[in-house]
Each structure stands twice: as structure tokens, then as C-alpha cells.
Design a binder for these strands. Structure first.
Length: 469
RNA sequence: GUCCCCAUCGUCUAGCCCGGCCUAGGACACCACCCUUUCACGGUGAGAACGGGGGUUCGAAUCCCCCUGGGGACGCCA
């Protein structure tokens, strides 16, 4: 049974690249009936924050995929130290007491040749040290592994420096903790970003030193920003945060769908896929080797394809479900909404939204007492003038005062009115639409009038007439 | 500086491993037209790419080499 893990470090919010790593791990686990482990890599006490841990959970929960087991590295430090000790005892690591560091030749540290006796003595005396892996370069040999995505990989030990296993404060480094836990948790596949590809040679060395078979590795092409650099929290800001997508009104699945298409393909031209279809189609063979650019700008933080996918997902969602999701977004935008009313509005705006937050700009007039002020010139129809607009609105007021407020009778009544006034239907409808919606672009007129109700419509048309008079 | 990885439309990608079916396919975006009471949805269509140079071969987007370009890693961060 495959066992994979997603191992974020709580040093910032969950960004889209991490989210993709999580999703690919999830997909692999589900496709192969395996186990997905969430492991918090929090060995760097200085940089960890509760806030970012919360934000990671928030992001992962929103994705709504779940995981099977949970661990925190900070609760497993004894294991890491014990394994580091094993490496030391096998002579494959040494204590480096020269804490200056920077000028030091990273290949051949001065303390590399210290005798074990002296090393032990100084350690017992309480002298601080860094435990380093003793990379065997005499003679150099090639460290090899086969990556499931990038193929055979090889690197000479001559090009690998003596990296740290334990810090002078006694805490394990990422390399040590990660490998120790991968062994202990019996991880079978390590699926992570390609930025770890060169680290992997060090990890292979650690697995060897521990006498453990290394897991299979699958490195993912990086997600890069339009400026060409690896996506980063520091450089690109909140536009790369998963919560930014959530707050804008992405549907979790649309987001997942989009992210899956970055660096992976089902190879058969499918793009909109259900969760089940993704699980069934996901294999390492479909993963690309080249980095994927995610398109965003300061003005428009979301990739157009993500937005399109989301619009499609919105159109495919049920009215009840959509209305339920729209209510909080509308409230956040300051609109006075309730579920019942949203249920009537949702069908009118479903295909006019790409993000859930669009509800605020597309449906505001359904929920406000008083329309936002608009330019009275908007009331004047194509190839028409002020008197025409006035005539239309006056007639419309009479008609709507009498008509039954259902789609069909409104349709019939207003069309008849247009004919009487010898106007094109468009010339008849536009002033009415602007009067009741406060703008030219809006959902279909009769449905809109129906939902708005007679009282509101007459009131707004009256106001429009006053504006023109 | 050293090492590693990558290279098809603006972007995401199919094709590459197993050369010919590729006058390079799909999607998003953009543009045009159709539908239409506006907007949107939907439909139809157009433009748009194999980074360059050498090989190998009857034949190369596909195989090899070089160049160029891009990215990543080299921390007592992960």
C-alpha cells in the first residue's frame, strides 16, 4: 500500500504551489488506494507561527480533500536525534565545532578529521557543534536515483558538500528530520516540488546511512510567476495564497481542477474533470518536466483559465447550492440578503458570474432599498431621445400597474406597449431596464421585474421619470 | 562560481520515449460572425507555436551534439 505525505512548514500561508503538491499527493494516494499523510515540518522554532499553521489548515480544509494521518515533526525530535546518532556512530557524520562557517571550505571542513575521542570529549564538555554528514569523496562516486518524472538522476559526491544534520541547538535540520520521518512513517513515494531535486542526492545519502531503502521520488515541475521566477510568498504576495482564491469566490473543485492542469495532463484533451475523473486519470506519466507559468497581474490576480473553469463550475451547480454559497459573499459586500430571495435571484445571475463575489456587482439592485445613482442619459434608448424615454416609462408605469407580475404576462404587456408606441422592443425595454436596475447590462427583463415585484418596479420607474422631467 | 533541470501558439498543453498518419491537435484569452430586449450563456469561424546551428536518416517537433535562453539548488530555512 502506497504511503505518501504532504509536508508543509508553517512559515507562511498556504500558497498555490504547496496546494498543488498536496493535491498531487492526494490524487496519487486515492488513485492507488494509498494513505495520505499530513506532516507539519516545524523543526525551525524560530520561524514557525501559529498563524501560518492556522492558515495552512484553513486552505487545506477549503480544498475539501482530506488526509488520513497527521504528524508534527516537533513532536518527533527524539526520533530524529536518535537517527542522527546512528549516522554518527557509523562514522558517516562528524561534529563540526567551528561555528564560524561562512569562510570555511564547504567541501572539506576543518573538523572533518577530528578523532572520535576528541569529538566526544569536546561534546561532553558542552562545546556547541553542528553535526555534519561526511560525504564520501575519496574517491568521488556517483549518487543515483530514478525520479518517476525526471528519469535517471546522478550526481558526483565531489559536488555535494558536507551538509548539516543537527544544528548547534540540538534540533534536526530539514534534511535529517525529513528523511528520518520518511523512514519511520514508511513513506513509499515522495512527491514534491522540483526545487528539491538536487536536495534529493543528500537524502539518498541519508537513507543509505540509515540502512533504509529510499522511497520512490517524483518531482513536480515548478509553478512560476509571469516574471519568470518561482512562485513565492515574499515576492508575489497574497495573489499566490489559496485563501485569496477562496475569498474571491472560487469553488474549491474549480480551483483543484485548474491546479491539476498545471504540470499535468490526462493526455486526451479533457480539461473540465470531476474529482473522480481526476483520481482515475492521475499517474506520474502525465506529469510534465517543464515549469508552468501561472498567469496573473496586479490588476487581475487570477489566471484566465482558472476563472473560466470557475464560471463553468458555477453554471453547472444547482440553484440551491449556489444560492447558499452566494449569501455570505453578498453579505460581505454589504447587501441585505436572505436565502429565500437569493434562491429567486440565483437563476438569473448564474451564467453571468465567473467568481462568486461577482454577485455584488451583478445582482446588487435586487437587494438594495434605493438604487445607486446613475446617469439619466442611460435611460434614453438607442436612436431615441428624452421624450421617447419619458413616453416609454410613463406607458410602462401604467402597464406594470395593471399587469399580472409573471414572466409571460409581463412579456405580452410590454411588447404590446411597444407596438402601440411604434417602437422596437429594444427601445421599449432599455429604459425600463435601466430604471429598475440602474444600469444597461442586466439579466433578462421580465424575470427581473418578476423577482423585483410590482411595488419596487413602479417606485423605481417613478424615480426615473422624475429624473427625466 | 559549482552542480542539477527544462525548452511546441501570449498562457496551459497533446504529439516526443517506440522517427513518416503533423499542411503540429485541444483549451483559455483575443478578434469576427450567428443567436438575442441589454449583458451573459450557447454556436460557428479566424489569427497564433516546434529557440538557433550542426549531424543521423529516404524522411526529424520527435534521435545525437553544440549554442542560446529560462528555471532551480548550493544555509545551523524548509
Amino acid at each position: 500500500m502506497p504511503r505518501v505525505r504532504f509536508a508543509p512548514s508553517p512559515t507562511g500561508y498556504l500558497h498555490i504551489g504547496s496546494a498543488r503538491t498536496f493535491i498531487f499527493n492526494w490524487l496519487y494516494a486515492r488513485h492507488n488506494d494509498g494513505t495520505l499523510i499530513l506532516r507539519i515540518d516545524d523543526t525551525d522554532v524560530e520561524r514557525n507561527t501559529q498563524q501560518s499553521l492556522d492558515s495552512i489548515f484553513e486552505g487545506l480544509k477549503w480544498l475539501d480533500l482530506g488526509w488520513d494521518e497527521f504528524y508534527r515533526q516537533s513532536e518527533r525530535l527524539d526520533l530524529h536525534r536518535a537517527m542522527a546518532r546512528t549516522v554518527l556512530d557509523r562514522g558517516l557524520a562528524y561534529r563540526d565545532f567551528s561555528l564560524a562557517g561562512s569562510d570555511e571550505d564547504t567541501m572539506d571542513r576543518a573538523d572533518r578529521g577530528l578523532s572520535r575521542d576528541e569529538s566526544d570529549r569536546r561534546a561532553e564538555a558542552g562545546e556547541p557543534f553542528v553535526l555534519r554528514f561526511r560525504v564520501d569523496r575519496d574517491p568521488p562516486r556517483d549518487v543515483k536515483f530514478r525520479d518517476a518524472v525526471y528519469g535517471e538522476q546522478s550526481k558526483s559526491t565531489a559536488d555535494i558538500e558536507d551538509f548539516a544534520l543537527l544544528r548547534s541547538n540540538g534540533l534536526p535540520t530539514y534534511h535529517m528530520a525529513s528523511c528520518a520521518d520518511d523512514v519511520d512513517l514508511r513513506i513509499t513515494q515522495v512527491i514534491r516540488g522540483q526545487d528539491h531535486l538536487t536536495n534529493t542526492f543528500k537524502h539518498v545519502l541519508i537513507f543509505e546511512a540509515l540502512g533504509a531503502a529510499p522511497p520512490e521520488f517524483a518531482h513536480l515541475p515548478l509553478l512560476i510567476a509571469p516574471d519568470g521566477a518561482k512562485l513565492s510568498k515574499r515576492k508575489h504576495g497574497p495573489v499566490v495564497s489559496v485563501t485569496t482564491y477562496r475569498d474571491a469566490g472560487f469553488l474549491p473543485h474549480a480551483f483543484v481542477n485548474f491546479v491539476c492542469l498545471l504540470g499535468w495532463s490526462p493526455k486526451d484533451d479533457r480539461e473540465q474533470m470531476t474529482r473522480q475523473e481526476l483520481v482515475e486519470a492521475f499517474t506520474f506519466d502525465g506529469i510534465n518536466r517543464s515549469n508552468a507559468t501561472i498567469n496573473f497581474t496586479e490588476q487581475d490576480p487570477f489566471d484566465p483559465k482558472a476563472v473560466w473553469l470557475n464560471g463553468e463550475a458555477i453554471r453547472q451547480s444547482g440553484i440551491e447550492e449556489l444560492a447558499r454559497q452566494l449569501v455570505p459573499l453578498a453579505r460581505a459586500a454589504g447587501l441585505d440578503v436572505d436565502y429565500e430571495r437569493m434562491l429567486r435571484v440565483a437563476p438569473l445571475i448564474r451564467e453571468r458570474m465567473k467568481l462568486l463575489r461577482d454577485v455584488a456587482t451583478v445582482a446588487d439592485f435586487f437587494f438594495v432599498e434605493k438604487l445607486l445613482s446613475y446617469d439619466p442619459a442611460e435611460l434614453i434608448p438607442q436612436k431615441g431621445d428624452r421624450p421617447m424615454a419619458l413616453a416609454v416609462l410613463t406607458r410602462a408605469r401604467d402597464v406594470l400597474g395593471a399587469a399580472e407580475f409573471t414572466h409571460d404576462s409581463l412579456d405580452a404587456a410590454l411588447r404590446a406597449a411597444a407596438q402601440e408606441l411604434k417602437l422596437k422592443t429594444g427601445q421599449m425595454f432599455q429604459p425600463v431596464r435601466v430604471a429598475v436596475c440602474g444600469r444597461k447590462n442586466a439579466p433578462p427583463l421580465f424575470e427581473t421585474l418578476e423577482v423585483l415585484g410590482r411595488e419596487t418596479c413602479l417606485e423605481r420607474i417613478g424615480e426615473a421619470i422624475e429624473m427625466l422631467a
